[in-house]
């Protein structure tokens, strides 16, 4: 797994496209296109890109308690890890916007979402072989 993060409008998508040489790619699943978190992964592709995970996490945070959210999140990470391991050269790239550095949100639901996102990113980073922070188009490989 490769985790790509950074602030909003920092060029994360363009960087992933450039790094993985993909343009309009079938294996690109984006929360911004209102697609659900993939429950089952296709077998005919070796590269999957999941974009906008903060949005999926928001969806989870509205429905479940923090602890449950992270359990569900980790079960997705299990699923993705085993999909990767099932065949050599498989890879999942996960793009998530960093939403954690502003002032404390006024609304409880947004505080909750922000907390869950921070924890989920920690879990994801731990399980990723590579992690890059994108800063205005430049990448900083931090793992």
């Amino acid at each position: 797994m490769h985790f790509v993060t950074g602030g909003a409008f920092n060029g994360k998508r363009a960087w992933v496209k450039k790094s993985y040489l993909v343009q309009d790619y079938d294996g690109w699943i984006s929360a911004y296109d209102h697609r659900p978190l993939p429950e089952k992964l296709e077998d005919d592709q070796d590269l999957l890109i999941l974009e906008g995970i903060e949005k999926w996490l928001k969806g989870l945070s509205v429905e479940y308690e923090a602890k449950q959210c992270l359990e569900i999140w980790n079960s997705y990470l299990d699923l993705w890890t085993s999909w990767e391991k099932a065949k050599t050269d498989r890879k999942i790239v996960i793009i998530g916007t960093d939403i954690t550095k502003g002032i404390v949100p006024m609304e409880a639901e947004n505080r909750n979402w922000r907390d869950i996102t921070g924890w989920a990113y920690q879990d994801l980073a731990k399980r990723s072989e590579q992690m890059d922070v994108i800063w205005y188009g430049l990448n900083q490989k931090i793992k």
């Binding site: 602030g7 909003a8 939403i99």
Partner: peptide, 10 residues
């Protein structure tokens, strides 16, 4: 300024 590490979709 660094101001983009926050939700912007609200």
């Amino acid at each position: 300024n660094e101001v983009l590490n926050v939700p912007v979709d609200g």
